[in-house]
Structures are given as structure tokens and as C-alpha cells.
């Protein structure tokens, strides 16, 4: 019984790893604006990071995915009420589309500290090596690709209530 439980757990873990490794994090062709070229002006980034418009359905996945956005770790989202464990660290994202413009959401996702100040716990999802001692595996990489940032913005813009 105990063994069976463990086998199931291992299978579930392998499944989760396989699913996340199938997601391409650095799709250079879709990222014409590299992280070092992105500028936040007055809490906004007006130009999209990629030429391809964001896909809200993909963005919804990145929002919940623990290896990618993992936004749910810190933000309550009533649109995902069927999923357990909404975090309480940041504000709820309910109706976030009524509070921020796409350019503001882009700036918050890319580099929250440039919008809210240095004290915010929110990571910059399109920043390269922001902290000291970045693990080798993540060195030189952003948490999200430019396309994934655009996808999440597209998803957030659907949250109107």
C-alpha cells in the first residue's frame, strides 16, 4: 500500500517534469526585444516584447504553472477558483484589467521593482540575473520568455471582474 502510494507519487512527479520541459522557455525568434533593451518609462512599457500577439489561453496556463509564472503562488485569482492554494502575498488579480493598462501590466511583469519600488517581493519576470548567486541552471535566463509575458498580459486583460 505504502509502496503503491510512492509509485503513484513518483509517476506524478515525472509527469509534471515532462510536461514542463516540453515548454520552450527561450524561443528567440519570437523575442525581438531582449531583456536588456526593455525600458520602463513612468511605470509603463508601451511596445509589446514580441511581434506575435499574446494568447490568453496560453497565458492562463503560464499563470498557474509552478515552473513558469507561478503567479497563483502569491495572488488570489477567482477565475481559477477550482484550483487549490491561492497565495496571499500580493493583491488579488480579480478585475485587474480594470485597474491597469496593458503597458502598465507589461512593466509590472517585466520588472515590478521599477514600478512599485525596491521593497516589493515580486520578481522581475523578464530580467536577467537580478539577484546575487543565481543558480547555474538559471544564469543568463529570464523566468518567462517575452512571448510568455505577452500571453499572461493577454490573459490578465480578460479579468474584468
Amino acid at each position: 500500500m505504502k509502496k503503491a502510494m510512492h509509485t503513484i507519487a513518483v509517476c506524478a512527479l515525472i509527469g509534471a517534469t515532462a510536461a514542463s520541459s516540453a515548454i520552450s522557455i527561450n524561443d528567440a525568434s519570437a523575442n525581438p526585444v531582449t531583456p536588456d533593451k526593455v525600458k520602463v518609462v513612468d511605470g509603463k512599457i508601451k511596445t509589446p516584447l514580441t511581434n506575435k500577439p499574446g494568447n490568453a489561453a496560453d497565458g492562463k496556463n503560464w499563470f498557474a504553472n509552478r515552473k513558469l509564472g507561478n503567479c497563483l503562488a502569491c495572488h488570489v485569482n477567482q477565475d481559477m477558483s477550482s484550483k487549490p492554494f491561492h497565495g496571499e502575498i500580493g493583491p488579488a488579480v480579480n478585475a485587474v484589467a480594470t485597474r491597469y493598462s496593458p503597458a502598465q501590466l507589461r512593466a509590472i511583469l517585466v520588472d515590478a521593482k521599477s514600478v512599485f519600488g525596491d521593497q516589493t517581493i515580486m520578481p522581475g519576470f523578464y530580467k536577467v540575473d537580478p539577484g546575487q548567486r543565481v543558480a547555474k541552471k538559471f544564469k543568463g535566463k529570464t523566468i518567462l520568455s517575452g512571448q510568455q509575458v505577452e500571453d499572461i498580459i493577454a490573459y490578465l486583460l480578460t479579468l474584468k471582474k
Binding site: A73, F85, E88, I89, I121, V134, A135
Partner: peptide, 25 residues
């Protein structure tokens, strides 16, 4: 109090500023 890693966080970000709150599970 030093921020480290790709997530750019320090011990204090979680254990001083946000203790008592849920971070996912």
C-alpha cells in the same frame, strides 16, 4: 537581508515581511 537568485529574494522577504501568509500551499 541580501536578495539572491533568479527570484531575487532575501530571507526577510518571506520570513519577516510575509510570515503568517500563504505562499501557494
Amino acid at each position: 537581508y541580501t536578495r539572491v537568485g533568479q527570484l531575487n529574494m532575501s530571507c526577510s522577504n518571506c520570513h519577516e515581511d510575509n510570515y503568517g501568509k500563504n505562499i501557494r500551499a
